[in-house]
């Protein structure tokens, strides 16, 4: 049994979901989308999965399509929320987790999905934040992700434009701003996993084919590494099976460069117990 970085990445995202959480993903988030269904099929069968812009509750889609509001995503759901039902729930604090990404992410977990360069005359006008600048204030926990860490342009000292709010902005901390949600809890990249101890990104896990030096070279802020920095735990057979059955179209791969997709891993490299169903 072998697996590729996109499969491992989705598993790492899924693992940030705690059992029985109410979880959402926004537009254009295929890795997060697949991860949520993987979590529900493995360690979090009692999570409340709100499926993207269909707002379907706990659906069983036959495949993940390349757009977040296709009817295939609501198959099997007894109920789909209206747009306003979802956003009301999120703002009053009933949504525990959502996934956010960005063209830029800074050390406090602020993300930029609006513009690279000055917004009045951008170098690159990005798609836009959807509900992010309000959701990031009130949702319980955020899992951030990027598959473009290695480019060196994504994890930055300061975002050119802050769309979604992390732990500290020029206007103050989350506590000073009176925000009710906990903010970014994890940042998963194709190089490793960060937590936000003390409100600042801290590297806690590395993929085994990545060195700390590579992470520092790709990161625009000083990388603080945890004392017990460890390797990302390999996926189990059950997790891999879930990824492959949830995403037969492979939409998750659209987030990765061809170079990254060539990263393949085998259990033999990880020793006893790896690649099997484990409770570790």
């Amino acid at each position: 049994m072998s697996w590729t970085i996109d499969e491992w990445f989705v598993v790492a995202l899924a693992r940030t979901i705690r059992p029985r959480e109410t979880v959402f993903h926004g537009f254009g988030s295929p890795c997060a989308q697949v991860a949520m269904h993987v979590a529900r099929r493995t360690y979090a069968p009692e999570m409340v999965l709100i499926e993207g812009a269909m707002y379907a509750i706990n659906p069983d889609p036959p495949f993940i399509p390349p757009t977040s509001n296709d009817a295939s995503l609501s198959r099997g759901a007894a109920y789909s929320m209206r747009f306003e039902e979802f956003f009301d729930a999120a703002i009053r604090g009933d949504v525990d987790r959502m996934f956010l990404s960005g063209g830029q992410i800074d050390v406090s977990g602020n993300t930029n999905v609006t513009a690279i360069g000055p917004v009045s005359r951008p170098k690159v006008k990005l798609g836009g934040g959807g509900g992010g600048c309000n959701l990031s204030a009130t949702i319980g926990h955020l899992t951030l992700w990027t598959t473009r860490h290695r480019s060196g342009h994504t994890l930055v000292e300061a975002c050119d434009f802050i769309t979604d709010i992390g732990h500290r902005t020029p206007l103050g901390t989350r506590a000073e701003l009176g925000f009710t949600g906990g903010g970014p809890q994890w940042l998963v990249t194709e190089l490793g996993v960060f937590d936000f101890a003390g409100g600042r990104a801290r590297l806690v896990e590395l993929f085994p084919d990545v060195s700390l030096a590579e992470v520092r070279a790709a990161t625009g802020f000083p990388v603080q590494a945890a004392g017990d920095l460890r390797a990302v735990r390999p996926p189990s057979a059950a997790e891999l099976a879930a990824v492959r059955s949830v995403d037969p179209l492979g939409v998750r791969t659209s987030e990765f460069s061809p170079r990254e997709l060539a990263r393949t891993f085998e259990p033999a490299a990880f020793g006893r117990g790896a690649g099997q169903d484990c409770a570790c």
């Binding site: 609006t114 990031s136 204030a137």
Partner: peptide, 10 residues
Amino acid sequence: VRGVRGSDIA
């Protein structure tokens, strides 16, 4: 609304 402050969307 509860958010927006701290975001450059403002």
